[in-house]
Nucleic acid binder design. Structure first.
Length: 195
DNA sequence: ACGCTGATGCTCT
DNA sequence: GAGCATCAGCGTC
């Protein structure tokens, strides 16, 4: 089997796996984050997914077995991370949008350093070098928790997408202060071609 | 309180 | 060369 037994639950459709990641713990070294907000991306048939136009060097990892980390660089200065789902050959993934830092002084956590996908990555020092990392082996590891009751989970449209912005594939823990507020895709203004 | 904007560089066409 | 699965900072109400 391609997926570690501990992470076997990830070996399925991203939309079904995504809510299972709420409450799970992502850690690196001494830093641990409890996931509070995620988004599902359904691979080649999802216009919002990086895998939409097929396999490329960047999205290669998404086509591999579940339980690995897919990281990418965006907007010139940010890294975002996904948990790869679906069987080997299928490009499903779940974007990790926000979490709550564990074990730290609550006073420090009040600033929500892991709110937003790029800040979550910065908190765990995740970079492009972590692309493809086996989440069962580390250095970044994922520990699943007992499923959160459906009544405590909210859903809505995914954040910041220009395509497929209508599908409610964003999942978060209702009332969690670490969850980012919804932002529609920024309308693109033309590069000052001048008057 | 909320909305709009620029910054910044990797990735694919 | 254009487009981004973003964020912080500034402006306006």
């Amino acid at each position: 089997m391609a997926v570690s037994p501990d992470l076997a639950a990830l070996d399925g459709p991203s939309v079904e796996v995504a809510p299972l990641l709420l409450g799970a713990t992502l850690s690196r070294g001494e830093v641990a984050v409890r996931l509070t907000e995620v988004e599902a991306y359904a691979g080649e048939r999802d216009p919002g997914s990086h895998a939409w136009r097929g396999r490329t060097p960047r999205n290669e990892v998404m086509f591999g077995p579940a339980g690995h980390l897919y990281t990418y660089f965006v907007y010139g200065m940010h890294v975002c991370a996904n948990v790869v789902t679906d069987p080997d050959g299928r490009a499903g993934a779940v974007l990790l949008r926000a979490g709550e830092v564990l074990g730290d002084d609550p006073a420090v956590d009040r600033g929500h350093p892991a709110r937003g996908p790029a800040r979550l990555c910065r908190t765990l020092a995740i970079t492009l070098d972590d692309d493809g990392c086996d989440l069962a082996a580390g250095p970044v590891t994922l520990t699943l928790a007992d499923p959160v009751p459906a009544g405590l989970i909210s859903t809505g449209p995914r954040v910041g997408l220009r395509r497929a912005a209508d599908v409610p594939w964003r999942f978060w823990l209702t009332g969690e202060p670490s969850v980012s507020t919804y932002r529609p895709a920024a309308p693109r203004r033309r590069r000052t071609p001048d008057a």
